[in-house]
Design a protein around this nucleic acid. Structure first.
Lengths: 348, 348
DNA sequence: CTGTTAGCGCTTTCAA
DNA sequence: TTGAAAGCGCTAACAG
């Protein structure tokens, strides 16, 4: 009786290994390994026997052992910048669906320490753990506060940022909305409603700056350069509320406010509400077209970045890049569309 | 020149191992291992030297190797039942904070296949991957559609369900809101406003049934047994909308509707809105007190389950259980409080 | 505390 | 295709 067999008898509950499968299928251990790592190279007949034996024993390859041997796991690491922002849930959902279609798996973690307040802190512990597990590639949803401390996670593997800028990650790709087109749509919409005193609220993050620049550009193109006003705000409800409070206490308050995203727009809406201001007094728009915008009591005019498309394209890009095909553009801009609702006072 | 040294010279970029650290610190490989697995047993002096050497070399233990050897990883697996429901984000946030405090790390995945529609399908692939990585314990946020196919993930390790029932998981704990107290608060509130024809919307999930039962009980206690009406609905906005549409087309529509959660309440609100019905016509309440409820244009009266407490307690329980202390109750019920807002027409 | 030995389950290489 | 052998980086057990 071999060591092997004795063990199997003594400990029948133990998870089967390739050795057990090889024994049952009557093939070599190497062949079983091959079946799982490079099935093309094995004849159908033998493959069938191996798979049957595996099925019979309830064998599943040990990911940990495989990862240790190859120095690489086969899942996709997902970093979420802000779990509270529903936009990222939409993007991750779309990406996950695409991963699933490709037979790939994603494991996620929050990139930012919860409740770290206005100064968002990278959740370095979790990121290190994810990194130690050596994911084959990494999807980042949103912009990270400090990309440099991603450390080894961003090295030696494909990285794609969905709905954020790939600043500081030279080899990373980025799939995002075309802010210039988005802001152009907003300015066109608002000017067509007669607005000229249009303020922008945002500018405090990388994406915020991009949108603020696009706002300024569009305003200038419409001959409204002297009305340009950017009020500092982050992308949170509270940030929007604070910024709006300050903006609305100015002598000449704007007749329209463009918030850099839906969450901030919600904060603006609260500030307007508190002052009894309606869309007829101050038009308001957001950006993201998250489900928040479509809530009956919110009814927020918003730019739809096509979050599903962004998530899907980011996922596809990652899968392509894993296959070694990195002849892709560094940045993929998705053309947005405008969704008009009551908040802009257009009477719809 | 040893194999070891030759290798270090030939490949300086290679990640250092405990052997390298041991060499630099002038101690044995075993000691280095001990420093990371059971630091208590090592004298301060030697520990200091090992840690200094590790720092100098930039050494971090290889999680994969450790996991293979111990047949167990040291992270906590997190399963999210519904990533779109903001309640779970709040719970996970609180739990993550607690994990972080304890020096533990969590890795997350969506338990349910995105866009699988009304029949929610368990995302078995990702769950299997998580399971293969052998997390030390598992936190489940929300109720899973089919717990049986969790397979080995739920075996041989502590499992705690946060904000959901541990049905089908005999050895799992559960931290959730006390539905009976929550519904009692709601019925008291609504009856004190003069309502008696109060309908309940939910009952299609495990938690839904629990709340429906609690509703019936509270109604009966208030002598309103003949007004009991449960309209089937799931926990989504669309589900709430559909259920409300059907409910409002009845001959005698109720004067108050209790939705089983905030998301469904949002759907009810949309249906009411479409019919021009105000809180004075039909009072509406939710359950979760998610940030959705506090949005100015929503202003939903809701039961606050203390999501932060639920997440925190679930995390603590898990950490306790990992330490072998499982002399804990099978279910921990958190006492909720009522947050009154405009939707119940109480004039606030 | 040290040092040695064995082993976790898989991949990889190589000669047969 | 096979079988053997070495190795991934760590843990675990044990004699010193």
């Amino acid at each position: 009786m071999s060591e092997q067999q004795r063990d199997a008898v003594a400990n029948p509950a133990k998870r089967p290994t390739i050795r057990d499968v090889a024994a049952v299928a009557g093939v070599s251990k190497s062949l079983v390994s091959l079946v799982y790592s490079d099935p093309e190279k094995v004849s159908e007949a033998r493959k069938g026997r191996v798979l049957a034996a595996a099925e019979e024993l309830g064998f599943r390859p040990n990911l940990l052992a495989r990862s240790l041997a190859t120095n690489m796991s086969d899942f996709i690491g997902i970093l979420v910048a802000d779990p509270v922002n529903p936009v990222f849930a939409e993007i991750i959902d779309a990406a996950s669906l695409e991963f699933d279609r490709a037979g790939r798996r994603g494991l996620m973690t929050t990139a930012v320490l919860p409740q770290s307040g206005t100064v968002r802190l990278l959740n370095e512990g979790t990121i290190a753990t994810l990194s130690d597990l050596r994911p084959r590639s990494v999807l980042i949803a949103g912009s990270l506060p400090d990309v440099t401390s991603l450390g080894s996670l961003a090295e030696d593997r494909p990285v794609v940022v969905a709905s954020g800028l790939a600043e500081g990650l030279p080899s990373a790709g980025s799939v995002r909305t075309d802010d210039r087109k988005g802001l152009a749509l907003l300015i066109e919409h608002l000017t067509s409603l007669g607005h000229s005193d249009i303020a922008h609220l945002g500018g405090m993050t990388a994406v915020g700056r991009s949108r603020a620049d696009a706002y300024e550009e569009a305003m200038t193109r419409h001959g409204l350069a002297r009305h340009v006003h950017v009020q500092d705000s982050d992308f949170t409800e509270l940030g929007g509320y604070v910024a709006a409070t300050s903006l609305l206490s100015r002598e000449n308050r704007p007749t329209a406010i463009i918030a850099a995203n839906d969450l901030a727009a919600l904060g603006v809406q609260r500030a307007l509400d508190e002052r009894g201001l309606t869309p007829e007094d101050v038009a308001l728009t957001g950006y993201d077209n998250s489900f928040l915008a479509s809530i009956a009591g919110v009814s927020l005019t918003s730019v739809d970045p096509h979050n599903g498309v962004i998530g899907r394209e980011a996922a596809r890009w990652l899968i392509e890049a894993e296959a070694g095909n990195d002849s892709l553009p560094h940045e993929l801009l998705i053309e947005p569309r405008l969704v008009v609702r009551r908040s802009s006072g257009s009477g719809i």
